[in-house]
Design a protein around this nucleic acid. Structure first.
Length: 201
DNA sequence: GTTATGATCTCCT
DNA sequence: GGAGATCATAACG
């Protein structure tokens, strides 16, 4: 059921980012399993991508996780407030990663609702990278954890999103990346209510 | 040691 | 439509 390690070791991050659409993502903390299927991702293509933390081969205590062998999680804090979950791909030394921007929750909705302090469940419970991490209970404590662990993993449940329902678009929040900000490295499911909206200008 | 800033979200007007 | 929250990280002195 879990995706095999080899799945993550493809060199084609962008292709993987698209393929991850429709795969299931689960976490287990304190015995509570929560998760759903991925409806939005963004690829960060290693050292040649200005939007990537590893651009130009930058390797620091934080980004060293991205250089690990594919199949681990890269979690970091952004804006001092939000944790973000990435899937590291490719082989050791190749800092490719995929940001999980949104999932369609299917399991443990009540737990996620409590984690988000929401009175009512609305689509924004797992809409946007910061929200996904919070709803799933993900924090920097699981940075660099293996995806074949029982804490955080992905599954292929045979859900197929039709090719025509997967849209490619420019990434969000990376204006500082110059030309690379325009690359169509963001993928999402057309019409899915959990897909985040691009930020305003 | 100091300083600028971000792969964002939420609430307010 | 817009600002504030809030801090680890990275670059620099």
């Amino acid at each position: 059921m879990k995706l095999p390690e080899a799945y993550y070791q493809s060199d084609d991050v962008v292709g993987l980012a698209k393929d991850l659409i429709g795969k299931y993502l689960f976490t287990r903390f304190d015995g509570m399993v929560t998760g759903g299927y991925i409806v939005e991702t963004e690829a960060y293509a290693g050292v040649i991508d200005k939007a990537s933390h590893a651009f130009g081969g930058r390797n620091t205590p934080r980004t060293s996780t991205m250089y690990l062998n594919g199949g681990v999680a890269y979690v970091y804090l952004c804006y001092g407030i939000h944790e973000m979950l990435n899937i590291v791909t490719s082989v050791e030394g190749q800092p490719h990663a995929i940001l999980i921007r949104a999932i369609n929750p299917t399991l443990g909705l009540d737990v996620m609702q409590a984690r988000r302090n929401m009175a009512v469940i609305k689509p924004n419970i797992t809409m946007g990278p910061g929200s996904v991490a919070k709803a799933l209970g993900i924090s920097r404590k699981v940075n660099a954890i293996s995806l074949k662990s029982d804490i955080l993993w992905l599954e292929d449940k045979g859900l197929v999103i039709s090719e025509s329902d997967i849209i490619a678009a420019p990434r969000v929040g990376v204006d500082y990346a110059g030309d690379d900000a325009l690359l169509p490295y963001r993928f999402y499911v057309k019409g899915n209510p959990y897909v985040s909206k691009p930020r305003k200008p």
